[in-house]
Design a protein around this nucleic acid. Structure first.
Lengths: 191, 191
DNA sequence: AAATCCACTTGATAAATGTTAGGAAATGAA
DNA sequence: TTCATTTCCTAACATTTATCAAGTGGATTT
């Protein structure tokens, strides 16, 4: 299972055998059925997760009690409430499995251990951070400049498998629109 | 002039006298009249800027040739096309002064020198990065969930001086709406 | 099989925002 | 100054998206 993680990291940096061993010793394999709450709002996020299989989302409840999905991720990707995990602050978000899923997880303390004992992982973590920054900047830009239909078209173009595995209500929320609007957009596109 | 920068950094980390000296040796003071293009699209961003006085924005041209403002900043803040500056990649954005302004700037090489020779600055730079990530994540969330009016109300509540110093067309673009929409919203709020 | 639930869709209508056009006020150049 | 340009605002109309209410079909329960 951990090979997926090693493979992903090796695409960005070169892991020595001892790095691989170190990595394997710090991550823990866990499984969840679909719709399980993995990390709950109101607490400090315990783990950073790497997705081996399945789909996972982050969501919170707005002032009207509506679920707002802020992130959806799939293999091979990391997911957690990053800022609150890194700074060990209380998060307002829930991490939930969308499908059955297999994950690797690492605690803040163990991640710290990993980064202290291997400059390679430290460099890699900075890269992940930069990518997350660029991703969020791009997402803000798209939300500001694209119409709901353009945002949906871009999503299915870049992540076609999301549609097969994630309920449309979650997709609608993630794209910043109502399920009814997404339903109409989908109907329009079919013709 | 550099005192503003030192003061800001000292709010987050404790700078020793030699850190202050090091910092002063790496930053350079520059001035620009209003509406000057400070960094131009199609090139690798040369400097990271710290704003001493004045307002600055980042913008690009979309496929229809419209200016899209992605960031607006004021003292005491940093501004550049972060991702492209850090990775020394070609940027699609222009950095422009909105008002007359006084800036401190540092090249990528000099920033590297600063981070290598002072762990304090290294820690500070990681904090700045984390804050930028949190900022972008929040901005994406607001763009996805708030109406144009709510976004404007939040802006003038959090940054009331922006309104006095930045043309409304830039503000409208930054908030992801047309100037006409912002004009209507402003009129509505007055009553 | 009937009842229930849930996700998704559909339709009618309302609200928000975009588009187009024009005009007043401020700004800059000759 | 005067003229031209730019910025900002306004209005009428078009389009997009939200809201509210209802219906469909599949899955689950009893």
């Amino acid at each position: 299972m951990i090979e997926e993680l090693i493979t992903l990291i090796n695409k960005s940096v070169n892991l020595a055998p001892q790095d691989v061993d170190l990595c394997m010793s710090q991550f823990e394999l866990v499984q969840f059925p679909h719709s399980a709450i993995i990390e709950v709002e109101g607490k400090v996020p315990t783990y950073l997760y790497f997705i081996i299989s399945g789909y996972v989302r982050l969501f919170y409840f707005d002032e009207k009690g509506n679920e707002i999905t802020t992130h959806i991720n799939c293999p091979p990707g990391f997911i957690t409430s990053y800022f609150n995990f890194i700074n060990q602050k209380v998060s307002a978000e829930n991490l939930q499995s969308i499908t059955d899923c297999t994950l690797l997880r690492i605690s803040k303390a163990n991640l710290g251990f990993l980064l202290e004992h291997s400059a390679v992982f430290k460099n890699y973590s900075i890269m992940v951070f930069e990518q997350a920054l660029a991703y969020n900047e791009n997402r803000a830009k798209e939300m500001a400049t694209l119409s709901a239909e353009q945002r949906y078209l871009k999503l299915i173009k870049n992540y076609p498998d999301v549609l097969k595995n994630v309920p449309v209500q979650y997709i609608a929320s993630f794209l910043g629109m109502k399920p009814e609007s997404l339903s109409r957009i989908r109907k329009k596109i079919l013709q």
